[in-house]
Simulated scan of single mutants.
Amino acid sequence: MTDTAPAAPAAPFGTRLRRAMDARGPLCVGIDPHASLLTSWGLGDDLAGLERFSRTVVEALADRVAVLKPQSAFFERFGSRGVAVLETCVAEARAAGALVLMDAKRGDIGSTMAAYADTFLRPDAPLFSDALTVSPYLGYGALAPAVELARESGAGLFVLALTSNPEGAEVQHAVRGDGRTVGSTMLAHLAAENAPEVAGGAPLGSFGAVVGATLADLSAEDLAIDGPLLAPGIGAQGATPADLPRVFGAAVHQVVPNVSRGVLRHGPDPAALRSSADRFADEVREAVGRG
């Protein structure tokens, strides 16, 4: 064993994501070991249950889905030992070929934002992930340390822009002095990050937005950011793959639908988890015309 740090990915995140979705289907499956799911799997709400849950999901799905999205909070609640389980989960998922999107929704300023970026986006970090969710509501410019490190390391970001939770509207739909909403402003920033002169003409940019699949009307939004659109809300929250063309319109081919409970509720049987994920991926392919 050597002390050599792992190399950064050979291709930018957006390029790797496009390849993964083309090969495995456009689907992201969450790893959300919250107490009710652990109980429904017959597991304890404890470290042993956390380990069993996360390992089962990774072993069942990491070799077949494009993206796995661990929700960091459900691991952090067990303290340092829970974070150690998360480290193993990330490493094993990436080793099996899945891209890992860390759902941590970090957002801060200055050196603190830089430290968050180091935690998840530096290739030699124990929690290095292919991409990270971030919150821009201290100002998009405050995300600069994460943007810079993601670009340097070949990782990606998903910025909260138009989320599906009802509370988000009071911030995201607020109108700025220039007449644009805050959410629209975030989309414009991401389009600039993915511009060919900045991103080098990759097939898909590495800087994406979180845009809820449950939102009724996005016709006023410019979703052509040349980057991925992470779309939570498929499955248990009520949206279906068939809704995607209506919600996202011409940008539907950039969408990465996220399913969590809709797949995870079929555990702990690995075959049932695989069957559910395959079914969602097939439905998405059919809906967006990538069959």
Results as ranks from 00 to 15, higher is better:
46 D>I: 09
47 L>R: 10
47 L>I: 15
48 A>L: 09
49 G>Y: 06
50 L>Q: 07
51 E>K: 14
52 R>M: 01
53 F>I: 02
54 S>M: 11
55 R>P: 04
56 T>D: 11
59 E>N: 13
60 A>M: 02
60 A>K: 01
61 L>Y: 07
62 A>C: 06
63 D>I: 00
64 R>C: 10
64 R>M: 13
65 V>I: 12
65 V>M: 08
66 A>T: 12
68 L>V: 04
68 L>N: 01
68 L>C: 02
69 K>R: 13
70 P>F: 10
70 P>M: 12
70 P>T: 11
71 Q>L: 07
71 Q>R: 10
72 S>H: 13
73 A>Q: 13
73 A>T: 09
73 A>W: 07
74 F>S: 01
74 F>P: 03
74 F>L: 08
76 E>R: 14
76 E>I: 03
78 F>C: 13
79 G>F: 13
79 G>N: 14
81 R>M: 10
83 V>F: 04
85 V>I: 15
88 T>Q: 13
89 C>Y: 11
90 V>A: 00
90 V>G: 01
91 A>Y: 00
93 A>P: 07
94 R>C: 00
95 A>C: 01
96 A>F: 03
97 G>M: 05
100 V>L: 13
101 L>R: 00
101 L>P: 08
102 M>W: 06
102 M>P: 09
103 D>C: 07
105 K>Q: 11
106 R>Y: 12
109 I>D: 12
109 I>K: 09
112 T>K: 09
112 T>L: 06
113 M>F: 10
113 M>G: 10
114 A>N: 05
119 T>I: 06
120 F>D: 07
121 L>I: 03
122 R>L: 13
125 A>L: 05
126 P>F: 05
126 P>W: 04
127 L>S: 07
127 L>P: 09
127 L>C: 11
127 L>D: 04
128 F>A: 03
129 S>P: 10
132 L>K: 12
133 T>Q: 12
134 V>M: 07
134 V>A: 07
134 V>S: 03
135 S>R: 11
135 S>N: 15
136 P>C: 06
136 P>Y: 04
139 G>C: 10
140 Y>N: 06
141 G>H: 12
141 G>D: 15
141 G>N: 09
142 A>E: 14
144 A>V: 01
144 A>M: 04
145 P>G: 04
145 P>H: 07
146 A>C: 05
146 A>K: 00
148 E>M: 00
148 E>Q: 14
152 E>V: 01
152 E>K: 15
153 S>G: 12
154 G>E: 09
155 A>T: 06
155 A>I: 02
156 G>L: 01
157 L>P: 07
158 F>H: 09
158 F>G: 00
159 V>A: 02
162 L>I: 03
162 L>C: 01
164 S>H: 08
164 S>N: 10
165 N>I: 03
166 P>K: 08
167 E>I: 00
168 G>S: 09
168 G>I: 02
169 A>M: 02
169 A>Q: 13
169 A>S: 15
